[in-house]
Simulated scan of single mutants.
Amino acid sequence: MIAAVLVNSFVVVLTVIVHYEFLFRLTQLLPKMKVRHRFRIVLGVCGALTAHALEVWIFAFAYYFLNGVGGWGQLQGSFDGSLADCVYFSFTTFTTLGFGDIQPVGTLRYLTGIEALTGLVLITWTASFLFVEMQRFWNRK
C-alpha cells in the first residue's frame, strides 16, 4: 500500500508541476505576443488544452506500466492492454466522464480515484486562469 501511495503521489505531483509550468509560461507569453488581444484568449485556451492532454498522457503511461506489473491490479472490460486504451481510460477518468466500459481492479482503483480528483482540480484551476486572462485582455483594443 505504501508503494501505491508513493507512485500515486509521484504521478499527481508530476501532473501538477506540468500544469503549473504551462499556466506560468502562458502568463508570461500572452502579454508579449504581437497579436490581437482576443486571439490571446484563444491561444490561452489552446495552451491549457495542451497541458490537460499531456497530463492525461502521464496518467495513461502510469496505467499502461502498472497494468503489466503484478500486484497492482489491472484494467478490465473493453480493454486490450494497449496504450491507446490506457489513454482513452485516462481521458474518461481525468474529465470524470467515466463511460464504464473499462474498469480498474485492485490497487489501480486508487490511481483512478486520485486522477479524477486531480483532473477536477486542474480543470478548475484552468477555468480560473482563463477568467483572469479574459479580464486582463478582453476589453483592450
Rank of each mutant, 00 (worst) to 15 (best):
G47F: 10
G47T: 13
G47P: 12
A48D: 12
A48W: 04
A48P: 02
L49F: 13
L49H: 04
L49T: 14
A51Y: 00
A51W: 00
A51D: 04
L54I: 15
L54C: 05
L54H: 01
L54T: 11
E55P: 02
E55T: 07
V56P: 06
V56D: 04
V56Q: 03
V56I: 15
I58Q: 12
F59L: 12
F59D: 06
A60T: 11
A60Q: 08
F61K: 08
A62T: 02
A62C: 12
A62K: 02
Y63M: 11
Y63C: 07
Y63A: 06
Y63E: 06
Y63L: 12
F65T: 13
F65V: 13
L66H: 03
L66N: 05
L66W: 00
L66G: 05
L66R: 00
L66F: 00
N67S: 08
N67A: 06
N67R: 00
N67P: 04
G68Q: 13
G68M: 06
V69G: 09
V69D: 15
V69Y: 12
G71W: 08
G71T: 13
G71A: 03
G71I: 07
W72L: 04
W72I: 01
G73M: 07
G73S: 09
Q74F: 05
Q74G: 09
L75N: 10
Q76R: 14
Q76W: 05
G77Y: 08
S78W: 04
S78Q: 15
D80T: 08
D80N: 15
G81K: 04
G81P: 02
G81L: 08
G81S: 10
S82K: 13
L83K: 03
A84T: 13
D85A: 15
D85K: 15
C86G: 06
C86I: 09
V87T: 13
Y88M: 01
Y88V: 03
F89H: 13
S90Y: 00
S90W: 02
F91V: 14
T92C: 05
T93H: 09
T93Y: 05
T93P: 14
T93A: 14
F94N: 02
F94V: 05
F94S: 00
T95V: 07
T95L: 05
T95N: 01
T96D: 00
L97Q: 12
L97D: 01
G98C: 07
G98I: 09
G98F: 11
D101R: 15
D101P: 14
I102T: 10
Q103G: 08
P104T: 07
P104Q: 01
V105S: 13
V105R: 14
G106K: 01
G106W: 02
G106Q: 02
T107S: 14
L108T: 05
L108N: 05
R109V: 09
R109F: 03
R109I: 04
L111P: 12
T112L: 02
G113N: 14
G113Q: 10
G113H: 09
I114V: 15
I114K: 03
I114Y: 07
E115F: 04
E115K: 11
E115I: 05
A116P: 01
L117C: 01
L117W: 04
T118N: 14
T118D: 10
T118G: 11
T118F: 01
G119R: 09
G119I: 02
G119K: 08
G119Q: 08
G119C: 09
